[in-house]
């Protein structure tokens, strides 16, 4: 499992068709690859490069820029415990330590059964509800040791499948835009002077131009 499945390749081509410049589809396609395999595989990047018409080096350049793209396998559930200042003041250090004990791994590692990957992360923008964490980017706020334990238990028991899909899935509902409803943006001319610059040039040139006239 690595390159896109035939179904996903169809989806990929549809995503590509939305953009006037194919390269714009790089990030959505990387998400698709991550959804398929739980992380972005090397073969998937090669496949994306083929579909987009760039080199694999350009794909990996984009992919590694974003931390949410995982290049190595992660657990079914990626648990991100915020360690930034608000959460830290509200006890996230202890929470992360508890999480490590509960899951039996250090932050950054994955449980042997492949269920959980634990990470300490920078601010995830839920400071008013500190301490907070995300499971596959779904929030849990005002987390205590007890609520963390029950969260882990529920995830392990599969009770939260409806709310929290496996890592990589951004949303269960896929966007489909029929061709007749596409924005129909024309490919921009890469050598074109940006609009703001055109205006600026016109402004500076107009006095001289009027003199000439």
């Amino acid at each position: 499992m690595a390159r896109f499945t035939p179904e996903n390749e169809t989806v990929a081509r549809e995503i590509l068709s939305r953009y006037p410049v194919p390269k714009s589809a790089l990030v959505p396609l990387l998400h698709l690859a991550q959804e398929q395999d739980g992380h972005v595989t090397r073969d998937a990047m090669v496949h994306i490069a083929e579909l987009v018409g760039v080199t694999p080096a350009e794909v990996i350049g984009t992919c590694t820029f974003y931390e949410m793209f995982k290049m190595e396998p992660v657990g079914r559930y990626l648990v991100n415990v915020c360690t930034n200042i608000s959460c830290m003041l509200m006890g996230s250090d202890a929470l992360l330590h508890h999480a490590e004990e509960r899951l039996g791994i250090s932050a950054g590692d994955t449980t042997p059964d492949g269920m959980f990957t634990l990470e300490g992360v920078e601010c995830i923008a839920a400071c008013t509800e500190a301490p907070c964490l995300q499971v596959n980017y779904r929030y849990r706020t005002n987390v205590t040791n007890e609520s963390f334990d029950s969260l882990v238990n529920e995830l392990a028991a599969g009770e939260l499948e409806d709310e929290i899909p496996p890592h990589g899935t951004l949303a269960r509902i896929r966007q489909h835009i029929p061709a007749d409803r596409a924005a129909g943006v024309a490919p921009p001319d890469v050598n074109r002077v940006p609009v703001w610059m055109q205006t600026a040039v016109a402004d500076t040139e107009s006095p001289a131009g009027s003199e000439a006239n």
Partner: peptide
Amino acid sequence: DPLIHFLHRGNHTEVNTFPDE
């Protein structure tokens, strides 16, 4: 031949190729 590219971000940025390419 864009076969080398910046990888990663911030302090970890480096120039590199795609693995094995």
